[in-house]
């Protein structure tokens, strides 16, 4: 297969960027999108040119390192798929493909298609955990958790932290990312003691990082490679309302 590529090039965070056009040929339809870019990069290296910078690691859709805007869609046109899993057979032979970095002010561009997503780590650091020191845990079966609840928590926990939700959101909101973690921990009994502090702290951090509001467009769910549902955003809001009403204090359990 053959493709024309229009790719965003930007030397550094404060440098202006621009699109450049490339052509790749002899691409196997089984190649992943990143392998296609690898091929292009090999060619650029051979020509003594600077290869296109992009992040990736596991190349099987679980680490969340990869993530490109492909033809205006986070991780490309296929639903439930990361950029590294996307195969070239999804594109018509000979077509023009536009590639941009994930854009959000909270995700500054580092180089070309590489962005800084550490804001997501800081949201987790603000409260996306259960405070349990190593060694202090009771027996794992001490607290039974209904299968349905465990499954629902797992649905939310499946987040790979790629940032596609932010990238796809017209408002660059991190509500799905944050909501998924808050949901997971709010569903499990282990997460209850800290639920009020957690949601307030994480939401504050989300705002400090400069993410937008959620306008309920639902683009995040469509872009999410793990199909995480926006019901998790609703659950986060319930948690938030509850926490604000109690002044962030732990509500005495009845």
């Amino acid at each position: 297969m053959k493709f024309r590529l229009k790719i965003w090039r930007q030397a550094g965070p404060d440098q202006p960027g621009r699109f450049e056009e490339y052509t790749v040929d002899n691409i196997s339809p089984d190649m992943s999108f990143l392998e296609m870019l690898d091929e292009l990069n090999e060619e650029l290296v051979r020509q003594d040119k600077d290869p296109i910078a992009f992040d990736s690691d596991c190349r099987e859709g679980i680490c969340g390192a990869c993530g490109l805007m492909i033809n205006g869609m986070a991780h490309g046109p296929k639903l439930g798929c990361t950029t590294c899993e996307l195969r070239m057979r999804e594109f018509p032979d000979g077509s023009l493909i536009t590639v941009e970095p994930f854009r959000a002010d909270a995700f500054p561009v580092i180089k070309d298609l590489v962005v800084d997503r550490s804001a997501l780590d800081r949201i987790i650091a603000a409260g996306g955990y259960i405070s349990v020191n190593t060694g202090s845990a009771p027996d794992a079966n001490a607290i039974p958790i209904p299968k349905e609840i465990a499954e629902e928590a797992m649905d939310a926990a499946a987040c790979i932290g790629c940032g596609a939700c932010v990238a796809a959101c017209p408002n660059a909101s991190a509500a799905l990312f944050t909501g998924a973690k808050i949901s997971q921990l709010a569903l499990l009994p282990q997460g209850h003691p800290e639920r009020e502090r957690r949601v307030i702290s994480m939401v504050n951090q989300m705002d400090i990082e400069g993410f937008g509001n959620c306008s309920n467009h639902g683009e995040c769910e469509a872009a999410c490679p793990k199909g995480i549902s926006i019901v998790n955003i609703a659950r986060m809001r319930r948690e938030y309302i509850r926490a604000v009403r109690t002044g962030g204090q732990v509500r005495a359990s009845v």
Partner: peptide, 17 residues
């Protein structure tokens, strides 16, 4: 939250509202 806009933006459809 997004001062630099995308050159190309499209919806993936699916569950999007």
């Amino acid at each position: 939250a997004r001062s630099t806009r995308y050159t190309m933006a499209a919806s993936k459809g699916g569950p999007s509202k």
